[in-house]
Nucleic acid binder design. Structure first.
Lengths: 234, 234
DNA sequence: CGCGCAGTTGATTAGGTTCAAGGGATGTGG
DNA sequence: CCACATCCCTTGAACCTAATCAACTGCGCG
């Protein structure tokens, strides 16, 4: 099937504007205009996409890859705030509010993303308020998610948090196999610890405990087999 | 000075639309229109403004009072997410995204707030995209704040968290006196604990420690005197 | 003035961190 | 294809801090 909207150089039939709910209210003609404003960028695994105090002033929409968004916490530890996958966007904080950027974005895999400059995007919103509503919706969702995370961190036990993370991972990075779900971890132990606010040792121990209790199997350093379980949770 | 925009019944010279950055881009005529869409509500101390699963489907802008936004955490504990003061708004989550509302809002003092219905507000945005940009800015700021809180919870020590909370309080609810700042606490110990994800006993102990170390003085149950300190932080 | 509940304080326990050492996986070079 | 080196991960033991359980205190309300 041919892609007639691919003014975005390099999008190669991926039609990023089409896949993203953000732009679902645009007419076809408007999509073509939109495409002309998009600049595609590619990063290698390990590349820094965003570093503190050097904001990009553009919205980025993740096309392909996994990106971690971190912030330097106290005592030189990094706190991971988000793990972004395909079709998620990032950078609103610099776009809409004048906030000194303390974020860092690192490509965890080879990554392709589409960027739209601040000026272009604001112009777009002024012309198409419906897009504003979409962005508001997305931001609200993100707020909601963050509120949930906050609730987890404050309220849930550490075991529960690890389990939720693994559940998230199994959805995003999992592959169904005969015994359950094989998770290809995007993070190493230390990064998982930084995500959950723990130390790498504790993560190890927790995983070992879950291994012993029969909920999962740790396979090498980057894979975890999560067993299916027909728990009838009351 | 007379208030010529007070179509909002009961706003009594407060001209809520004027005080709120959200509407700063409106012309005077548009403000008058705006006022006609606003419904003012009053609550007594302790009243429930919002209860789980009964969303209000409107934006509320806090005119006068203190409101706590909570969510039920595990084991029946409430997790306090926000403490809202004058001119802050709330309810976007139900406005822009279809999220089942799990939030609870309780008036901690006698409270007056202005509400705008979902339909009216969305119409307003379609007509005045500049407002959308403002809301986006506000949401971005809130996200930013929440990210900071998350970072605190995950990364900072408990002592640091309590200190930041007290600093926040001294800005919002403090009164400058000769020796420092007298904070009129909007929360009791248990609520402070629920805000920080601790137990009330720990909050007591921490305050006692800070008392002994000479950073503050606990006065009765609802007041704390925070001593001035000319710390030259490097 | 006295009662009740929020707040404090104490003793014990649980669980994570820290420091330290050992094991295994991944990937390179022979 | 195997051996080796390195890095990551795991495991162990001691420590530390907050939660828990329990008793007591005193503020603040009637």
């Amino acid at each position: 099937m041919e892609c007639k909207y691919c003014a975005c150089q390099g999008c190669e039939n991926k039609r990023c504007t089409h896949r993203i709910p953000l732009f679902s209210s645009l007419s076809e003609e408007e999509m073509i205009q939109m495409q002309s404003l998009i600049i595609q960028r590619k990063y290698k695994k390990g590349d820094y996409i965003l570093v503190p105090n050097e904001p990009m002033h553009c919205l980025f929409i993740l096309n392909e890859g996994v990106v971690k968004i971190t912030r330097e916490a106290s005592d030189n530890k990094e706190q991971i705030l988000y793990l972004l996958s395909n079709n998620e966007f990032f950078g609103e904080t610099n776009l809409f509010a004048n906030i000194p950027s303390t974020m860092m974005a690192v490509a965890l895999t080879d990554t392709t993303l589409c960027t739209i400059s601040k000026a272009h995007f604001q112009g777009l919103i002024m012309k198409h308020p419906a897009i504003a509503l979409k962005v508001l919706e997305e931001l609200s969702l993100r707020l909601h998610k963050l509120e949930q995370i906050l609730e987890n961190v404050g309220g849930k036990s550490i075991d529960e948090r690890l389990i939720s993370l693994l559940d998230d991972f199994s959805e995003k990075y999992g592959e169904t196999v005969s015994q359950g779900t094989m998770i290809h971890l995007p993070l190493n132990r230390e990064e998982i610890a930084n995500y959950l606010g723990l130390t790498r040792e504790t993560v190890s121990r927790k995983l070992a405990k879950l291994h012993k209790s029969g909920t999962l199997k740790v396979i090498g350093h980057r894979k975890i087999l999560l067993y299916d379980e027909e728990e009838s949770s009351p």
